[in-house]
Design a protein around this nucleic acid. Sequence first.
DNA 1: TACATACAC
DNA 2: GATGGTGTATGTA
Length: 470
Amino acid sequence: MPRSPSPSPPAGQPSTASDAGDAVKAIYVFANEKGGMTDINRGKINEIIAQLSQSSAYTAKLLKSDRRVDETVALLQQKLQRSDEGARRSAAAVVARQVAALEASRRADRCCAVIDFDMFYAAVEIRDRPELADKPVAVGGIGMISTANYVARRWGVRSAMPGFIGQALCRQLVFVRPDFAKYTAVAEVARAIFREYDPKMTAGSLDEAYLDLTDHLHKRARDGGGGGAGDDSGDCDGGGEGERRGTALTGEALGELAGEVVGEIRARVKEATRGLTTSAGIGPNFLLAKIAADVRKPDGQFCTGWSREAVLSFLAPLPVRKVPGVGRVMEKARARKDGAASAVCELLSRAAEARLLFTPGSADSLLRKSLGWEEGGREEAAGEALQKGISCERTFRPTGDEAELGETLRRLCASLAEEMAARQLRGRTVTLKMKTSDFDLLTRDSSAARPVGAAEELQARAVMPLTVAD
DNA sequence: TACATACAC
DNA sequence: GATGGTGTATGTA
């Protein structure tokens, strides 16, 4: 006899903060946002997570790092206070000039798409074991969950969450071991389809692809395959500065055709992968396409539009964290005065501040992103970019035994050398990374005169940062 | 060049 | 009781 009616997520109270878990909650953002989360149980979920995390070394280290970020942010504030009127004015002037230049160069003749499988690993596993379909499923192990299906997400189980927490949140959670060979094969099926639309397509990861559809769309429009020859009704295209490609396919017309094409691609992928769904974002560049891919997840697509108005009204209200490249730290550094997270519009309105605080490169990048103009995605892969590094790391039980550490190091070097040989790679700088039991990360590196690759060479250069005390 | 951080998936 | 692995980019000394 099975358990009773289908179990449902806990219906807790709205977060009754109070206790020692408060600081921890501030760190753990698992129960924020994202599809599938019901609002009702958020408090309960946070409580369980806080409970389990409270006394762990990992949390201690997170809190410590968070305090350091706070200090840095405080320093930035001081720096801002102390900046003189002249510096502020010239920063504002620079920003104004940049904004004008960027706006003038906005183009409406390019179309990019980012296509992303929905809960990829879990979807593949469920496809192959249909009996899992309505059960909460996590791909990963007790150490780490890499993907959770939407049923599991209703309990607060998410990717990048340690498995034991997932299990505490949802006792019926079914764990499935990841099978990367299988995922790679599935990804290859999808990529073959993507390449028909963009031969230069690039992959962000196994489950994510960047396609520049511009050429395909023009070809399709020329060959009259479909797509009403756009009625560009006034408010659409932003930069109507002539047709570089000979077809009047810009702005909204481009978007409309792209919508059909992307729908077609997604249908083909679903068919070819026996039912796997994808979500997609469409826009004038990869940055916007990437952000847009999140909007209609799962199994949907969204187009940002091309005009300045369309782009900005899409971006403005988004939390800065949605912008690729803006993570926990930058979010905090750009948070509002009252501590609340900023939206992209504030990023833009306070761009002059950023220019005073950060390196010119970072400030530029932030400004461009808040205008929705480039960066954050693939962008011109410009010929097969060569790989910059290769690594092999493993987490093991803490030990102070040098012989044991030495043996671990030997094994790591051996696997790495094997992988490098298989891919015919060598490198000049060997970096040894070591994580202590309290999650401090240390690196030591050593550069050789010429590239190395053999296990012995790697090992000889991997000098252990010993004397770790305690 | 050496080391640390931030970020993405 | 317990929080991964691979790769890229960037800041600072």
